[in-house]
Design a protein around this nucleic acid. Structure first.
Lengths: 340, 340
DNA sequence: GGGGGTCTTGAGAACGTTCTTAGGAACGTT
DNA sequence: AACGTTCCTAAGAACGTTCTCAAGACCCCC
């Protein structure tokens, strides 16, 4: 069947002895006589015809693609989101393309701008840092956009966010129930969206339960990575004697586990550890990691649905959703945790 | 500046009082008088002009995009590849889009076919399973393609592969040097490219060192995941008494670590464990995992360069590269492994 | 048997860009 | 003063598709 040469509607039409319009109609399921349809399909097969995406896009204004922008493909929480989103958009007839932007807001701005060239019908973005420039670029974009993460309240964009504060509250409550009192936070950079939210959440939770927050119990890692968590925990142990550590995400918490082991502290007997995001890394860790499920899969799902709605109805009212957190208890906080 | 309405070259040209051709020339760096260039740029700014990607693509035949198809975004080895590739293609002026296909060859075939519609200028693909249909689709594609992974020898495609057999040889050699004799393999599905290669490599290595290969020491997990490794190792321990376990990738090996801990075996004292791919997961594990570096970063880099070359010179001779493995020794095989 | 309807098909415009071709102005040379 | 060069700019075709519009064929019913 398939010829090697690139073919187009005109060639197919010529071969079938019909007009270009008819070929297009047949191939797109329009009405046509059985006889003509058969001739067209045969000709298309023989020529190995494949429609050209850019020509179709130019004509229709649609790409049937949705872009998911993630800051760090190495973070398992984004992996979870990718998996969820892929399924949802595929069901609605869109292809998902993933764009890894890096942590720099400049790259994200470039991406948002470039999408205005018409690479995709919509954008799902979960920015690590929200700068005024980024907000400006997002707002100015012609493209339907749904932001996963917290936005300034005045921004008129569909938005699904986690509730870090409540999530940390769950962790603190659980730790206090286990008799812990010196509950430290190994945070990521505080100029990021999750970093600032988790710092505030930590302080609020301690206060709520009548524990004094102290600078000693808060350390800031250089990123949301395993290695950064490792180093930051070393600093923490040099300056304080926590009996519990909350990592601002699972990777940081795993880094803390590592450093605690190296420092000869037993987990959870000497120090309990809690992660956040409840990703595969939490289950995979030794001991397995109690983790705050911030609903990454639910967030991704809600965001994807919101985006599809927005694409189909650009004038729909702006929706802002908050996903409630939950706690997954594992070995790192209770000696006799249930095993899978 | 930016108007909200979508604009095009004709609008810019009208506003600047010049022809469409001149606007295009100015914006693409062609020669033009300073005066005209200035008028054009001002008009473009005022209208918030953004060129349309599909129109440009239709005219030029280029998208300046490269697609990377990965079977499983959750596998850290692909994360490593994505990171590497992003940098290389960006330097050459391409945008990278990642497509997550799932393990089903059918999805991969769909992707390859759809790319013939002109979504990208080239494809980087690392198939888990190579079926005749997939080979057929890859060969029939008009698009420049580089395959990361082993291909049937008759396929005329640029290709970069790992050397699993030698890699497993390194692991076995190292384990034997540590006094191990009953060296088991926790493999992934054997109908996959890496699965079959690693099974063959295991048998060859045992034979080479004068150890008898036995079915008891080989178990096959349902996938290359942490959970599958966990379960498969449980089966292994029920049927044999290994003093060393090689996981066909790091996730399987981490699963083995977990199961060994649950079964009360000490690592590395009772059982040594080696992973493959040398990903972040190996360093993150407790104890940290000795792992065979199959050169995923190097492979990705070489493949990206090959693809760019192929795009720029479609008639270049077919290149097949093999990346040599290396062993990263950590705590899971030697009691006193060096710590980072 | 004629009028009005439905159904099938084709011609051609349009989407927004790039690039070829060629016209005209300015300038230098003979 | 005529001619050749060079530079700048404009006109218009082309990429491949979809979709509107109109024309023709056919059928039904009064």
């Amino acid at each position: 069947m398939a010829e090697t040469k690139k073919s187009n509607l005109a060639l197919v039409a010529a071969r079938a002895g019909v007009s270009v319009a008819s070929v297009s109609r047949v191939l797109n399921g329009g009405s046509a006589s059985e006889q003509l349809a058969k001739r067209v399909r045969e000709a298309a097969d023989e020529l190995g015809y494949v429609p050209d995406a850019s020509a179709r896009t130019m004509r229709t204004g649609r790409t049937d693609q949705i872009t998911l922008a993630v800051a760090d493909v190495g973070n398992p929480v984004y992996v979870q989101m990718m998996r969820t989103v892929t399924g949802i958009v595929a069901k609605a007839g869109y292809r998902l393309v993933v764009s890894s932007t890096g942590a720099d807001p400049k790259d994200q701005i470039d991406l948002v701008r470039s999408l205005n060239r018409g690479y995709a019908d919509g954008l799902l973005i979960s920015p690590l840092r929200i700068t005024p420039d980024l907000v400006e670029a997002l707002s100015a974009s012609r493209l339907p956009i749904v932001v996963i993460g917290t936005l300034p309240p005045e921004v008129e964009l569909d938005n699904v966010r986690a509730d870090s504060a409540t999530g940390i509250g769950l962790a603190v409550e659980h730790l206090i129930a286990q008799g812990r009192r010196r509950i430290a936070l190994v945070n990521g950079p505080v100029d990021t969206v999750p970093g600032s939210a988790r710092l505030a959440g930590h302080r609020a939770a301690l206060e709520r339960f009548g524990l004094a927050a102290s600078d000693e119990l808060e350390v800031t890692a250089t990123g949301f990575t395993y290695r950064a968590g490792h180093r930051a925990t070393a600093r923490l142990l040099a300056q304080a004697e926590p009996d519990a550590i909350i990592g601002a995400n699972d990777l940081l918490a795993v880094g803390a586990l590592k450093e605690l082991a190296a420092a000869g502290r037993r987990v959870p007997e000497d120090v309990a550890v809690v992660g956040m995001d409840d990703t595969d890394a939490a289950e995979l860790a030794t001991p397995s990691l109690t983790s705050v499920d911030l609903g990454s899969a639910k967030r991704a799902k809600a965001a994807a649905k919101l985006l599809i709605r927005r694409i189909e109805d650009p004038d729909a009212p702006v929706v802002r959703q908050v996903i409630a957190p939950a706690l997954s208890v594992r070995e790192s906080t209770v000696p006799e945790a249930p095993r899978a």
